[in-house]
Amino acid sequence: MEVSVTVNGTVRSADVEPRTLLAHFLRDDLGLTGTNIGCDTSSCGACTVLVDGRSAKSCTLLAAQADGAEVTTIEGLAGEDGLHPMQQAFHECHALQCGYCTPGMVMAAVSLVDEYDDLDGDSVREGLEGNLCRCTGYQNIVKAVLAATE
């Protein structure tokens, strides 16, 4: 079936199998491999992208369900001026070890900061409950998110 999704500001259309997951559409059809797939069961959050501005797990969403929607992936964050503030904060706070969870963490954090004012350590931890870091590098991830809010 024909699916048309605005990805990082550009309309992208493809003829996909109806069963195609959004994560596979992004990775395999569009070549946007920044979105990782970890668990396939909505647990780990590695596949987090923004769908119409809200965080979503792209491994449990059909590409067809995103037809007509606006999707932002990790590749869409940086602008002409360089890294997005959240990416810069992750870089400066060394908020990654193996890096596998990082794209999903950054996207979930962008959504969190967009939705809430007055974040503190506890609310950042709560807000990132849907994202797992298998290196258990949470300390610096929380630091980075807080740094990005300043």
């Binding site: 109806p18 997951l21 396939d40 069961t41 909505s42 059909l62 369900q65 037809d67």
Partner: peptide, 27 residues
């Protein structure tokens, strides 16, 4: 019937359920 898919799609990805015919309601 598929809405948010938070239960259904997990079952599908785990191979516990087949979906041959889907009506999605989230739009």
């Amino acid at each position: 019937v598929l809405a948010g898919g938070t239960d259904l799609m997990v079952e599908v990805n785990r191979g516990l359920r087949r979906m041959d015919d889907v009506v999605a309601l989230d739009r």
